[in-house]
Design a protein around this nucleic acid. Structure first.
Lengths: 113, 113
DNA sequence: GTCGCATGTCAGAAAATTCTGACACATGTC
DNA sequence: GACATGTGTCAGAATTTTCTGACATGCGAC
């Protein structure tokens, strides 16, 4: 796996995911190996709700993957790990992804005013 | 050229640049060849100030390049073209770019309260 | 001069994103 | 029971990004 045909939506999701310093740090931290949320929050010095949101976005983009597990002592622990993706982006690739971009949705009123 | 060592700032800039549908469309349109601003604005159906802003962001990220030229009949025309980049992003690359990420800038007050 | 078409920039509105501080739950230990 | 640990979620504030509608410039043609 690695070089799949990126859809417009996927390209947009990936771009958005990489558009924030915290998310880059999270991704970098997970490149070393899986970690559970609370631990990661402490390591990166950010609040859990915030980290949760960022992880959500990274997961939506398909860059990380979470799995809820049961630790030895019965506690529920959610581990996250980086998906071993390999993005490859060029102007041509962007161009060919355009047709699968969600329509602009004119935001001004629906179809029957 | 192509696979250069991405700095954290550059990675962030590129991600941000790709995080907007309009900018993807702009990039796609320029993949075919250079165009001047007003023409591009008509083609994409967006206002010139808006297009100007997006082009600025794309240029800051190093994905497009603009050059002000003088047309035959003496008019000043600004052409933009896509830079033939080839991004390659993996978790490891993100990780190695982290050290060159701009510091978090705690936003709370400066250095002498 | 006035029109057309190119350029750029500004202030402020509008919308989306980011972040915090509660709250909820479950489980094992003291 | 009260703690300490883990999980998730919510409403609202704070910030950033996006977008519009002016305005200003320059040059050629009429």
């Amino acid at each position: 796996m690695g070089t799949e045909e990126l859809t417009g939506a996927a390209l947009l999701a990936v771009g958005s995911a990489l558009a924030n310093p915290h998310r880059l740090r999270i991704l970098g931290a997970l490149a070393d190996g899986r970690q559970y949320v609370s631990h990661l929050a402490r390591e990166l010095g950010m609040s859990r709700p915030l980290l949760h949101m960022h992880l959500q976005k990274l997961q939506s983009a398909g860059l990380v993957k979470g799995s809820l597990e049961l630790s030895e002592d019965g506690k529920a622990v959610k581990y996250f790990e980086a998906v071993p993706f390999k993005l490859e982006i060029t102007p041509q690739i962007v161009k060919s992804a355009l047709p699968t971009l969600p329509p602009s949705t004119d935001k001004r009123e629906g179809t029957s005013p």
